[in-house]
Design a binder for these strands. Structure first.
Lengths: 215, 215
DNA sequence: TGACGCATACCGACCAGTTGGTATGTTATC
DNA sequence: GATAACATACCAACTGGTCGGTATGCGTCA
């Protein structure tokens, strides 16, 4: 009756615990500085279990990127009430406010898992690079939907001369500012500078849409 | 007579070769994925020489951050002709163009050494964190001089409502966009997206100063 | 009903190679 | 002849990964 599917379900299994532990430790110390043993200890799981679920450390990293995508999708695009706002431009500006509000406490708690991982692995592991890219791309494409709608509804007042600003391009820019803000916050040991950067980002988007002031 | 200072000078010594090798390899694979042996091999120097010049791998990393600061200062703020432009706003906009032009080829050749290093070490080594921060801060403060002058001379037309944009804050924003652009370029395996992000950055700065079009 | 077969989940000792770092030299330079 | 600049040999700890084993659950067929 309660047997659900191929994946056991029910109580938190070793696989999920390993994914969680990996995300936590990699955000703290990076991918290669995090050992398989550390991940197992953190997850309270043995090494045998680790290699039962994942063929290699690299495979775990790729799977963790997938888990990270799902987590972000829920936390940022689905659960919050403001995602149901009617005006797509309001949604976009509130999205930016929301991302700013997430930035507080220790850097390992608000920084991006895939952003950290891809920095170290882009040249050495195409699997990890591609998995990270997929996660970043999923976020950008999802965000681009709202931007596209905002452009349709309001139009961009201050476009780049000559070229036209695409929704996807602006979505990636949001992401770039976030990633860069994380690095500065890590360097300074304080989230303040990151929030200040996002102020600039919101100001830029407001200027693009000719919206003098949001909230 | 030609003995210069505490640092031997003269021919390229082991210390300088180790610093160069470290910067190259860390940009490629990150700090902890780069071993002392690899650095020695790349620098064509033995391990004995390594630990003669540096007390530890961590100390090398900190020294490399210093070397990186000097390199950037020369390459970006001193050597190019455009740094002698009269109008500080022209200098600022050309600075941004210059940074965009630097982005081509492989990511390990245009990305930031300290940005990469601080990602992995901020939580585990305060020495590396502080050394990275010092390098990022030196860049931002130097850039803020031009921004300050540009504000004095031209004024910011489209300021953030309520708050005022400080030169240093905008300088850090430039840096954040660059760092974020590097991450996206690494993920995508192509510099294009990074350049596109810097287009947004230049557009933002242009809008702030009410300058419709640069070059 | 129960015994059988088989798959999944997990355990932990073990392995060969690599890690950062040290100890003890030898060689060049002032 | 002392001091800095290297070289070589070595080490204990740790690395990712393997491997033989066990415990448990589930479908099946008598």
């Amino acid at each position: 009756m309660n047997a659900i599917r191929n994946i056991p379900a029910g109580k938190p299994n070793a696989r999920a615990k390993l994914l969680d532990a990996a995300i936590k430790l990699v955000r703290q110390n990076g991918f290669s500085a995090t050992s398989v043993d550390q991940i197992c200890t953190e997850a309270k799981v043995t090494k045998g279990a680790f290699f039962h679920h994942f063929a290699s450390k690299e495979a775990l990293g790729a799977a963790a990127a997938g888990a990270w995508t799902e987590r972000a999708e829920q936390l940022i695009f689905t659960l919050p009430d403001w995602t149901r706002m009617h005006d797509p431009l309001d949604r976009l500006l509130t999205h930016i406010d929301f991302r700013a509000a997430m930035i507080e406490g220790s850097a390992e708690d608000f920084t991006c898992f895939v952003g950290t991982m891809v920095q170290e692995s882009f040249a050495s592991s195409d699997i990890l690079r591609a998995a990270s890219d997929a996660s970043l791309t999923a976020y950008a494409e999802r965000l681009a939907e709202d931007i596209e709608a905002a452009i349709d509804q309001h139009g961009i007042v201050n476009d780049i001369a000559g070229g036209d600003i695409s929704a996807l391009s602006l979505a990636y820019h949001v992401q770039a500012v976030l990633q860069g803000a994380f690095i500065l916050a890590k360097a300074k040991g304080s989230p303040e500078i990151a929030r200040d950067n996002i102020r600039h980002l919101k100001h830029y988007v407001s200027l693009l849409f000719g919206k003098e002031k949001g909230s």
